[in-house]
């Protein structure tokens, strides 16, 4: 099949998933509701945060509040994402459309890309709501380094969605997919989210991308994205045809 044919079919599948979601609203609203509720709970649970602009001298052994807030942000994204990923193949399973889809003359990587792109859209929408909400609740100043923050967020999303989509396809073949997905995905996502915590905390702390990159987490993030996206796309074929 030509590259144009592959791209056209993949686009058609992405459009189908987004159209189904627009009509059904089965995935995005629960993700957003979960994320917003958790953000609100964390904001009330956390001690009153110092404003980032103010110089803070911390006693030895104390974690800067911005580190904790960055971790809160990504953990919220992580679990909201898993809620959405668990539903990745529900639309296909509902009326047996998965059989129709598996017979389509399209390389399995096209199916993977389409599912991953739809999941990425949902995660980005959640983040677009969550980031300003966190900024408001935890007194982040997104204006400090927002372009780099978006870059890091998108890079985290690539690895997150690749792993999430792959394990969603595994979980879809089990009866308790909502339970299986986090059990499978969370261990694989640990390095990605540690990098996300570190990079986000550094950026929000005013580190700048160069200083942040010099710590090595940026390289780990890039390596994770490349390795796991390729591995997930290749493994997907074996999972979906199992």
């Amino acid at each position: 099949m030509s590259a144009a044919g592959f791209a056209g079919k993949t686009r058609a599948l992405i459009a189908k998933d987004l159209r189904v979601e627009l009509r059904g609203r089965d995935t995005l609203p629960p993700m957003v509701a979960f994320a917003f509720t958790v953000a609100l709970l964390l904001a009330f649970a956390a001690p009153a945060p110092p404003r980032l602009q103010e110089p803070v001298s911390l006693p030895v052994g104390t974690v800067p509040f911005i580190d904790v807030a960055a971790a809160f942000l990504w953990i919220t994204v992580l679990f909201a994402g898993l809620i959405g990923f668990a539903r990745t193949f529900e639309v296909e399973e509902a009326d047996g459309a998965i059989d129709s889809l598996l017979l389509v003359p399209l390389d399995r990587s096209g199916l993977f890309l389409a599912k991953a792109a739809a999941n990425a859209t949902f995660v980005v929408v959640v983040e677009a709501i969550l980031l300003p909400a966190f900024a408001l609740l935890f007194h982040f100043d997104l204006g400090l380094d927002w372009l780099n923050l978006i870059l890091v967020t998108l890079l985290v999303d690539i690895g997150f969605v690749a792993i999430g989509t792959l394990f969603a396809s595994v979980a879809a073949q089990t009866r308790s997919r909502e339970l299986i997905l986090p059990i499978l995905a969370l261990p694989a996502l640990v390095p990605l989210f540690i990098a996300a915590f570190e990079l986000t905390a550094d950026l929000l702390g005013g580190g700048g991308l160069q200083a942040v990159a010099s710590r090595g987490w940026f390289g780990i993030l890039l390596a994770f994205d490349v390795i796991f996206t390729v591995a997930a796309a290749l493994a997907f074929e074996f999972v979906i045809d199992a």
């Binding site: 079919k9 389509v104 003359p105």
Partner: peptide
Amino acid sequence: IGYAGHRSGLYGRLTVMENLELFARLYG
């Protein structure tokens, strides 16, 4: 291969026309 199983194999939220147009596109 053209296969129609026990279940419809269609996307419930899409109309009949949209389902057929989707598969027409996927089959070229």
